[in-house]
């Protein structure tokens, strides 16, 4: 999966998990902020999104990791985090990509 494909998959997950009815994945800017300005997501959205991403990519977001703020800053940040975690995890322990 290329980084562009990963970013698009994350956008699909955002739309599905947060039930953004009038938003298409391709209309979500890759570098725009997800929280506050931009999509304006809140803590419940963060819960839904983190849960969906963990399920889909078999990654773990740590609430104590200061890098989380950067990871959740944008779709690009999430894609970079997911790609990094999947590299860090031994191949046999990875779940199947959707």
């Amino acid at each position: 999966m290329t980084s562009t494909e990963l970013e698009y998959r994350i956008k699909e997950i955002i739309v599905d998990a947060l039930q953004l009815v009038d938003v298409q994945p391709e209309t979500i800017p890759t570098d725009a902020p997800l929280f506050g300005a931009g999509l304006g997501l809140d803590s419940i959205d963060a819960l839904e999104l983190a849960s969906a991403l963990e399920r889909n990519f078999m990654v773990t977001f740590s609430e104590t990791d200061p890098e989380m703020r950067d990871a959740f800053r944008s779709v690009a940040g999430l894609a970079a985090f997911v790609a990094k975690q999947r590299v860090d995890v031994p191949k046999g322990a990875q779940g199947p990509l959707p």
């Binding site: 929280f35 506050g36 997501l41 809140d42 803590s43 419940i44 959205d45 963060a46 819960l47 839904e48 999104l49 983190a50 849960s51 963990e54 977001f61 740590s62 609430e63 104590t64 989380m68 703020r69 959740f72």
Partner: peptide, 17 residues
């Protein structure tokens, strides 16, 4: 026990845990 976190992202992750 856990920290509630400073922002929406940390609070969301805390709720997940």
């Amino acid at each position: 026990h856990m920290s509630s976190g400073q922002d929406a992202i940390a609070r969301g992750l805390c709720a997940l845990r």
